[in-house]
């Protein structure tokens, strides 16, 4: 059986290791996509929108790139330690006669919950949208702020 298939497939006849080679390539591809070696994206949740979270002494800052999203299409809520960002990105309909050359921008709904690593003051949450970047400033709760301790 093995021999017959060998001769029926001219490609395999020429190079019996071609199949093995193809499998090896596929395994390599799987490895590289599963275990993405780029450490910068190692902790990404894989949910739209991608966010960057930073902190200073008093606040947490959440930033997300949301080009083309208007402020009234966004919904931001806080509960406990988490912030929910949801909304919809709309792309306006163009002329019906327009012929598309490229269509890379996408529209759709999104929703993301982000838990902050410390207690927050839910009364002091501010959000701003400028040039397609959403910035949410979340004040830390008094207990979460670092306190200077003086040595007597």
């Amino acid at each position: 059986m093995l021999i017959r298939r060998f001769f029926e497939n001219p490609a395999a006849y020429r190079n019996p290791f071609a199949e093995l080679d193809r499998m090896r390539k596929e395994m390599d591809f799987l490895n590289s996509s599963l275990f993405n070696t780029d450490p910068r994206h190692a902790f990404s949740a894989g949910v739209f929108p991608a966010v960057n979270l930073t902190e200073d002494k008093d606040n947490f800052y959440i930033r997300a790139e949301l080009p083309g999203v208007k402020a009234d299409e966004l919904d931001i809520q806080t509960t406990g330690k988490s912030i929910t960002i949801s909304g919809e990105r709309k792309i306006s309909d163009e002329d019906a006669n327009a012929r598309y050359h490229r269509r890379e921008r996408e529209a759709g709904r999104f929703s993301r919950i982000l838990e902050l690593p410390g207690d927050i003051n839910t009364d002091k949450v501010e959000a701003g949208l400028a040039d397609g970047i959403l910035t949410i400033t979340v004040a830390k709760a008094e207990v979460a702020k670092p306190r200077q301790i003086t040595i007597k």
């Binding site: 994206h41 902790f43 966010v51 979270l53 002494k57």
Partner: peptide
């Protein structure tokens, strides 16, 4: 647009 005293906690983009 990051402030000078800000430290990264999570960087997704």
């Amino acid at each position: 647009f990051e402030g000078p005293d800000e430290n990264d906690i999570l960087v997704e983009y």
